[in-house]
Amino acid sequence: MKKLLLLVLVPFLLKCSKKEDSNIYIGGYRGLDKVIPYPYLLKYEDKKVSLYNYLGKKIEEKKVDSIKANDTLKLAGKELLICKKKGERITVFDLLDTVNFSRYKDKSRSPIYKDLAVFKKTSFDKIDMYVEDVKKLLESKIWKCNVEKSKNDTPNEDFVIEKVYSFKNEEVIELTNYYYKEEKVISENQSMKFNLFKIDNQLFLSFSKQTENSLPILQITVISDSNISLKNYSVRDIEGQKVLLKTSSINNKDFSTSIKESNEFENCFEGYQGEYYYGDDVTFKKGNEFLKNYVNDGLPEIKENRKEGYIIIHFNVNCNKNVGDFGLIQMTRDYKKTSFSNELVKHLINKVASLKDWPKVEGLEWLKYKDVHAFLMFKIDNNKIVDVCP
């Protein structure tokens, strides 16, 4: 069979052709402060503009002489005002979407800058593989990657965060492991649908959930039998975020065991979390005195390396009042970087992860799903927690 023969004959499964200029713009995000994935693609070629959805389906195509600032593209029920086209970026404002794109108070057609959507030109990385073969490769192995810090992520200095993926039957299970001093301290998992598609021999991987929760479209730039390089454009970083998937030594059985031992957690609205002080105060219901007693309960006895300082645990509280998406920062009393024992950090993280008494935050009219970014700062004296804030 031709497709299978290709896999046999090409040991590294991909070679990119010479670089060319791409005519595809991938939806990065909408909302400068919210950074919500914008799962569309624009293609402009031969005086035609096409709009694709996150499944790679062309939903409309029209003839246009050019794409420039102040043009309006009327495509698939959208009226995309081109606010700026400069270099590798196009910023647009959907004049018909009054829920997700806000205008000034005088109700003019002038957009509010922070509510624009951003398209970024893809890199031209031609993939000479069938989509079906890429899918078989993904589903044949367990993949892992270390998370590179971006401006979107939960503040974190001291965790090494690893994500492990299992692709099966158009579903991907993501396991997130948090390591401190090379020891795993906690894990969480979530499930999503995945889809592979090609446009002009450029290959894309998209994710989706059953809710109206937009997830990013990633471009696959390089593939080999043991590595897959992707690019995530739905981040504030101008160049996007590189993601390198490597084959993992873990087998399916061990992966399933790890999933069972981990916490289920997902953000209810990808890309945006309000702060704990946003709207009604979303601090812990039972107060800091309860928290102090709670985290000191079962505290491991640490006789060596007695230290003073602060352990700050960042996390999200999702719309179901579950806790996850952690970050770790540690400081001395004079706010210099330090590190505490594995036992203390692991104890605190697992205590925070088990907290349930968070107030529910109602979403705003224009935001159906609501997650909150929060943090707890623990004051440490001789490896004992003596105070908690905020």
Rank of each mutant, 00 (worst) to 15 (best):
M129P: 00
K120Y: 05
D71G: 04
S123I: 11
Y54K: 14
E61D: 06
Y44E: 02
V118S: 04
V118I: 15
I26M: 09
F124T: 05
T72I: 15
V35M: 13
K151S: 14
K19E: 14
Y40W: 13
A76E: 07
Y113T: 13
K144N: 12
K62T: 09
R89K: 15
D21A: 11
V8D: 08
K121I: 09
K43C: 08
K151Q: 12
K18G: 05
K114W: 08
G77H: 11
Y25Q: 00
R89C: 02
L42N: 05
K151Y: 12
C16M: 03
L138E: 01
K18C: 06
G27Y: 04
F12W: 13
K126Q: 09
L42P: 02
F119K: 03
L14F: 14
Y130T: 07
E45N: 15
F12L: 13
D128Y: 11
L81M: 09
I24S: 03
N53L: 06
K121D: 01
K135S: 11
V147Y: 06
S50K: 10
V8G: 05
C145Y: 15
D46A: 12
K19Y: 08
N53T: 04
F12I: 07
Y44P: 00
D21F: 11
E132D: 15
N100L: 09
N146I: 15
K47I: 01
W143R: 01
T72D: 01
K43N: 11
K63H: 12
K141P: 00
I67W: 07
K63V: 13
S108D: 06
L32N: 10
E88Q: 11
G87K: 10
K84Q: 13
L51E: 03
T122F: 05
R30E: 04
D94P: 00
L9I: 11
D128Q: 09
K34Q: 10
E88W: 01
G87N: 14
S140R: 11
I112A: 07
V64Q: 03
R109A: 08
Y44I: 12
L32I: 06
V99I: 15
N100V: 04
K136F: 05
L13Q: 08
K74D: 09
S110F: 10
C145H: 15
V35Q: 12
P111R: 06
L80Y: 06
Y130P: 02
K48D: 06
P37D: 09
L14M: 11
A69D: 14
S50V: 06
L5G: 03
K151G: 08
K15N: 13
G31C: 07
K34N: 08
S66G: 03
L138Y: 04
G31F: 04
V10L: 15
Y113Q: 14
I59Y: 07
L73I: 03
F93T: 02
L137W: 01
V64K: 07
K57L: 13
K149Y: 10
L80Q: 00
K62S: 10
E60H: 02
I26S: 02
D94H: 02
S17H: 08
L73T: 02
G77F: 07
G56D: 08
K126M: 05
L13H: 10
S22W: 04
D133N: 15
S140P: 03
S17K: 12
V134K: 00
R89H: 09
T72K: 12
E88N: 14
L41Q: 09
L75M: 10
Y104T: 12
K57A: 13
Y104P: 03
K18F: 07
D97L: 08
Y25G: 01
K57V: 14
K48F: 03
A117N: 02
E45P: 00
